[in-house]
Amino acid sequence: MLEEGLLADTNDAAKRSLYDITTFGEILIDFTWQGVNEDGQTLFAQNPGGAPANVAVAVAKLGGHTAFIGKAGKDMHGEFLKSVLEKENVETEGMLLDEKYFTTLAFVNIDENGERTFSFARKPGADTRMEKEEIDVDILDKTHIFHVGSLSLTEQPARDTTHYAIRRAKEKGSIISYDPNYRASLWKDEETAKKQMRSLVPYVDIMKISDEETKLLTDKESPEEATEILFRKGVKIIAVTLGSDGAYLYCKEGGVHIPGFVSKAVDTNGAGDSFWGGFLYCISKAGKRPEAFTMDELKEYVRFGNAVASLCVERKSAIPAMPELAQVEERMGR
């Protein structure tokens, strides 16, 4: 149940919002494989990462007003991450640096096709230690769209904090956005992942999943079947990302496939986050309730997101590769 109080109309919420989009969850370091040196030693580059942080930056680069809520360690990595968000004009008042825990690290290997495999140092990572009392409600209560992932559900207390934040944001009239972003190695087992990832669906208005996550969320592999199930559960807009093939969109008018843009992938890290950042940017600027959008409007927003992602994968890393609005419009031929 939602906390007591009136559920504000989303249009009214948009008018009073200070932030177009606020994201909550993990922020971490991606140590990305860079090859070997002359002595045969493996080289890794320090890159800012974490899906919610990536989304916040993607929207900010396009011109949106964004905020990030979460926790990193008060260490060299946490200080670096906070400075990156500030440089990208993301509000960081809600980002805490905790002396008791270390910033989560992810070691990322990229194959010749740009695809990734992950190894995490998170035992525990600072991002999992966020308490609900530490949430900056001055930010949370004034955001048009509130976006979360599922990695904050892997451990306590971040799991309860995630549910608290979503309930509160929904009560205040925010549109709730969700990207499960499954990472198998961070869960006890697949059944636990399914249970926790599905626990947020009843609160969600708009949702992005990858074609690899459809079965985890719905027990159905095909995007067509999976999106219908999620829609019946109350999600009003669902996008399934299909890599270079674009995305499958489902809303009240049914489903449709929107092709992607041709690009030469160098690094797919952040591709889904950049796509969703582009889509959320369009939703935020429209200022409408999720159920009010037409298929034609949403198709154009997905096409915009596809363009953002196609530009992102042409450069290395995630946050440094996020494009600006002029670049996206050029890619779209505007």
Results as ranks from 00 to 15, higher is better:
E133Y: 03
N89E: 10
F304R: 08
Q41G: 01
F68K: 09
S274C: 15
E131G: 00
D179S: 09
Y248N: 11
F279P: 08
N181P: 12
E38C: 05
K71V: 00
N109M: 12
D219Y: 12
D211Q: 14
V302L: 07
P52Y: 08
T103F: 07
L28A: 08
D189S: 01
L96K: 15
V201R: 10
H65L: 09
G254K: 12
N306I: 06
E115D: 15
L28E: 08
I237S: 11
E131W: 13
A72I: 10
G5Q: 13
M130W: 12
F146L: 10
V201A: 07
V328M: 03
Y164R: 06
K74V: 00
E291M: 11
C312D: 02
D98I: 07
T294N: 05
A321T: 01
R334Q: 06
E26K: 13
K123A: 13
F68C: 07
M1G: 11
D141L: 10
K71N: 02
G63Y: 03
R198K: 14
E225F: 01
E212S: 13
F102T: 13
L140M: 07
D20T: 02
N47Q: 12
E297L: 10
D75G: 06
A121G: 00
E291N: 13
N47L: 13
T161N: 04
K172Y: 03
D189P: 01
E133K: 15
Q327H: 02
R334F: 11
D138R: 15
R334L: 14
T22M: 05
V59T: 09
F31Y: 15
R122V: 06
G305T: 10
L280M: 14
Y301L: 02
V204M: 12
E190I: 01
G78V: 09
L97E: 06
I69E: 08
D39K: 15
G125Y: 08
W276C: 02
H163D: 00
S17Q: 07
G114N: 05
G25I: 07
A292G: 11
D138V: 00
D189V: 00
I110N: 04
N269L: 15
P52I: 10
V55L: 09
D111P: 04
R129C: 15
F107A: 04
S222T: 15
E171M: 14
T218V: 09
D273Q: 10
V148G: 09
K142L: 09
K215W: 00
D211C: 10
A326M: 03
L242G: 10
L43Q: 14
D9M: 08
G50E: 07
P223C: 12
T227W: 08
M322D: 03
F68V: 04
V256W: 00
G149C: 13
P259F: 02
G73K: 11
G125Q: 12
Y164N: 03
E91A: 14
I69T: 09
E93G: 05
T161D: 03
G234W: 13
I145Q: 10
K142N: 15
N54H: 07
T66L: 08
E300L: 07
S83M: 11
D75A: 06
W187Q: 06
F120R: 08
K132V: 00
K61L: 01
K188S: 04
F304A: 04
T268V: 13
K170D: 02
L200Q: 13
